[in-house]
Amino acid sequence: MSNLLEVRNLAKKFTSSGGAFRKARTMHAVNDVSFDLPEGRVIGVVGESGCGKSTLARLILRLIEPSAGTLHFNGEDLRAKTPAQMRDLRAHMQMVFQDPYSAIDPRYTIERAVLEPFLVQGVKPIDGAAAQVEALLNMVGLNPGLADRFPHQLSGGQKQRVGIARALALRPSLLVLDEPTASLDVSVQAQIIGLLEQLRDELGLTYLFISHDLSLVRYFCDEILVMYLGRVVEVLPDTNGQACHPYTITLMNSTFVPDPKHRRVIRPLEGEVPSPFDLKPGCAFADRCPQVSEICRAETPELSKHSGHLVACHNPI
């Protein structure tokens, strides 16, 4: 199985410009992220707001220019591509957005929205436009009769299906899913997840699944990257893997299970997520960590093997 996507030391710094009374500040949104995404796998990226998971998604698709690191897609160096070459490549790597309500131009009919990928890539739809629209809408489980509707006439779940149809129109091999169900009701969330599972099997897609919902990621993904303040702190190789990083364990204990017989014992968690501006040296979780020791505040831990998987912690459990 070859790697569809190889990410090495990817980083993004945002700098706020200083003024007369302010110092310029640097925010490390994504810091030194590396991973491989083999063809056909589903990798989940999980973390709380501000951990850099959405920025990571946009860096991989080069919707935001990385500050450092390399990106290889299908063996090709993405960062070496010109904007024109990048536009052509986009046909092979697509994204489904978090907010289906604003992901479709409000002035576009569903038909026009679904045909936009063909228009911008200069591809003629096979068997004509109407047949293509029908095929795509059928594929995502939408009634083709909705083709002449406007987005505001559709429910959230229906709009997200349109978003998926648009992303899949040009048959990409990689699909980045940025919290595709976060703004949907649970019953609809299950529909969309079911659809994504079915499409993966039918079309042989590779997914990068971004979410804040650990139980959803554990259900849906083969491998999980846990992010905290721009860094990957743990890579869980499979969904049953035992977590070793204190943050991952906190995250797991904070995620409730829908079973009143297995209530979580919630331990108090000290402090707050530190500001991503001007990070101190050392582990970002140190101030809140029950396992903290001297070295944690001095040295940033690197990802290293511990009990069979990668963990970035000086004192893994």
């Binding site: 709380e48 707001s49 804040h212 919902d213 995250l251 904070s254 995620t255 409730f256 108090p268 968690l269």
Partner: peptide, 8 residues
């Protein structure tokens, strides 16, 4: 809120 905050 985030899950860890929610738990608290």
């Amino acid at each position: 809120l985030d899950v860890t905050v929610q738990a608290q």
